[in-house]
Design a protein around this nucleic acid. Structure first.
Length: 656
RNA sequence: GCCGCGGUAGCUCAGUGGUAGAGCGCGUCAUUGGUAAUGACGAGGUCGAGAGUUCAAUUCUCUCUCGUGGCACCA
């Protein structure tokens, strides 16, 4: 019987004929010995596969070597498998669950009565090195579904059995073996464990819910990082250390910007320097909004729960609210602070501004001519966040949103959305953020309104993103219950992504709170509401900025823009004069006439990240000049005083 | 909220079953010095809170609290 011939197309479009059933490794060997040695996987029609997998039909192949981008994911995934074996070798009775490759590394979730501690990590690493050294082949097997379930159940691996039970009926159950150990896995894998190399390290132990659901058991997750070699690993670990140095929580203390304390957990005590940044940022946004046709308002913090009931927040969202009894508290030490009856009359700190903004809209009668009406507020909101969620400035319990609600007609949605997207783009660019991820969050399972409305809403936002020329990705199920949203995410120093700006379409709240306007036809109509924020919250955005700039903010945002430092006491009077002139020019200046050496002063101010130093001694006083030293440069420029002030003044002008 | 780890001077951190230490910062004095730390002296802490074990607890155990790495939730 003649052998089946198949045609293999190479990346350069040349073709080769092979017998059916040949493996990637055999093709590599056929091309050259060195290629066979260097190859770790193969792409069949663009899909990553094992080198050992028999090829049975015509395909285009690409042989993957260690330096290929896709190699990292394989290395990471395989390291996870090896870790799982190591853990089961060392801690019998531990169940394995899932262990994927992730950005920069991998993790594996284990179920074990006794949780792992950080001290176990070196032991596990040592065992992993043994397994890698062993060089077992990764061998792929296809198992019968029921046999697989029985096998894992019999081994006491109930999580694995559950995973297999939930796989679609038509999917092959593939098992990968490495020596005597095996795991359910889709693959693909490297040829052997030795191909993993030594560029890996276990980093941390964490808890994680089985299948990401907080009703399920808590598993122990071990995170690791894995790279092609030790050099890459070291570079990554170094990068992590550098990132830690720019953590806004660390810099916030060092730069004396703000603090937190237990009596007000999750709420910021802004210090003078930090609040300068806050005010500058708020002022900038205010100017931008004024110019974009927004009207600024201010609404109450404390609002009767009747409004929250009407808005719908008193339902599920209540668990995020701070509730306050509306009763005069007793001062009698022996009596309860408030009576039982107090709980019949509750108020709540607003967790969001929308219902209050609808109240402003609802005053008087609105005409279609009034729309769009853009109501803006630097709205102070309180949210009773779960304790584990709090994180420096990034996640707080009291925040100020740069919030606004646009009340408009349906035909104005796209126009307003496009205008907002443009506004966000220029604001982020003014603030120095170019790497922003835009997400269109689509309808969740639990939602208000019918599909027709959702179709319209989602298409409206999608259209706006396209018209604004923004690249974006779509996220199923991530929308709010009342409408889809556009989310702007910015990364922090260590790569965590935070949602900042947002645009949310809402057909529900205007109805619930009975907002209406008189149309051209003389009849009442329901306005559409666009919730939108550019920074998201001032707190979070400042946190992101501190990290992004590593504390060296643009001059207009810097709390202390200039320090006038003297070399000798003889220059004190001149220094005072220079300092006064700077203040009069609107420069945030500080005077340093302490009895310290100039070396000491220069060092101290540079460490504090003061961007500009005006150094003055007897010579400068005599010549009416200043010796300028800038952060990040050793140069000393002696400049005429008036010129120096003018230059600084020009440079410190905020954008817009 | 859940799992792990932590809380010692203003900050960063050592340390111990017999009520504590360093560096920086702070104060005083001397020093008037040209661009990354002048020197000397000094003042600071119920060792996160409460309970238990012990002759004795900052140290061991438990509970709470806050922080932290994740998870879940979210701007």
């Amino acid at each position: 019987m003649p052998q089946n011939n198949i045609v293999i197309t190479m990346p350069d479009n040349s073709t080769r004929n092979y017998r059916s059933g040949i493996t990637g490794m055999e093709i590599a060997s056929d091309i050259s010995k060195s290629l066979a040695k260097a190859s770790i996987a193969i792409k069949l029609d663009g899909k990553l596969s094992d080198l050992s997998l028999p090829i049975e039909q015509n395909v285009t192949i690409e042989i993957i070597k260690r330096d290929h981008d896709d190699a990292l994911e394989l290395i990471r995934h395989d390291t996870a498998h090896v870790m799982a074996e190591a853990v089961q070798n060392l801690f019998p009775g531990t169940q394995v669950t899932i262990g994927p490759a992730i950005e920069n590394g991998f993790y594996y979730d284990f179920a074990r009565d006794e949780p792992f501690s950080t001290e176990d990590l070196p032991k596990i690493e040592k065992e992993m090195r043994k397994i890698i050294e062993r060089g077992s082949k990764f061998e792929r097997e296809v198992w019968d579904r029921n046999e697989a379930i029985a096998y894992f159940k019999n081994k006491g691996e109930i999580y694995k059995a559950e995973l297999i039970e939930d796989l679609p009926e038509n999917e092959n159950i593939t098992i990968y073996r490495q020596g005597n150990w095996l795991d359910l896995c889709r693959g693909p894998h490297l040829p052997t464990t030795r191909h993993i190399g030594n560029g890996f390290k276990l980093l941390k132990v964490a808890g994680a819910y089985w299948r990401g659901n907080s009703n399920n058991a808590m598993l122990t997750r071990i995170y690791g990082t894995a790279w092609r070699n030790e050099k890459e690993l070291k570079a990554y670990l170094h990068q992590l250390e550098e990132a830690e140095k720019r953590d806004h929580r660390k810099l916030g203390t060092e730069m004396d910007l703000y603090h937190f304390q237990t009596e007000a957990q999750g709420s910021v005590f802004w210090h003078p320097k930090g609040f300068t940044i806050y005010n500058q940022l708020e002022g900038y946004i205010r100017r931008r909004l004024d110019n974009a046709g927004y009207k600024e308002i201010k609404t109450p913090q404390l609002i009767d729960n009747k409004l929250w009931e009407a808005s719908g927040h008193w339902g599920k969202y209540r668990e995020n609210m701070f509730v306050v009894p509306d009763e005069i508290p007793s001062t009698d030490e022996n009596a309860p602070v408030v009576s039982d009856k107090a709980f019949e009359k509750l108020m709540a700190l607003k967790p969001m501004n929308c219902p209050a903004h609808v109240q402003v809209f609802n005053q008087g009668t609105k005409s279609y001519r009034d729309l769009p009406l853009r109501l803006a507020e630097f709205g102070c909101c309180h949210r009773n966040e779960p304790h584990g969620a709090l994180h420096g400035l990034m996640r707080v319990r009291q925040m100020t949103q740069d919030d606004a609600h646009i009340f408009c007609r349906e035909d104005q949605i796209t126009g307003e959305s496009v205008a907002f997207c443009d506004l966000v783009k220029t604001v982020y660019s003014d603030l120095g953020f170019d790497d922003v991820k835009v997400v269109l969050a689509l309808r969740p399972d639990i939602r208000a309104g019918n599909d027709e409305i959702w179709d319209k809403a989602e298409n409206g936002l999608r259209q706006a993103l396209i018209e604004a020329g923004l690249e974006f990705e779509e996220a199923e199920n991530e929308g709010a219950f009342y409408g889809p949203k556009i989310e702007y995410h910015i990364r922090d120093a260590i790569g965590r992504s935070w949602q900042c700006g947002t645009l949310q379409l809402d057909f529900v709240l205007p109805k619930r709170l009975n907002a209406s306007y008189i149309g051209k036809d003389g009849a009442k109509h329901r306005p559409v509401m666009l919730h939108r924020a550019i920074l998201g919250s001032l707190e979070r955005f400042i946190g992101v900025m501190i990290e992004s700039y590593a504390g060296k903010l643009p001059l207009w945002l810097t709390p202390t823009q200039c320090v006038v430092a003297t070399i000798t006491g003889k220059a004190d009077n001149y220094a005072r004069e220079v300092h006064e002139l700077l203040l009069k020019s609107g420069i945030r200046s500080e005077l340093d006439i302490r009895n310290e050496k100039i070396n000491y002063k220069v060092r101290e101010h540079l460490v504090k990240k003061i961007p500009v130093l005006f150094v003055v001694g007897a010579r400068e006083a005599e010549e009416k000049t200043v010796a300028i030293r800038r952060l990040g440069s050793k140069a000393q420029d002696v400049v005429n005083l008036n010129q120096a002030i003018q230059n600084l003044k020009d440079e410190a002008i905020p954008p817009f």
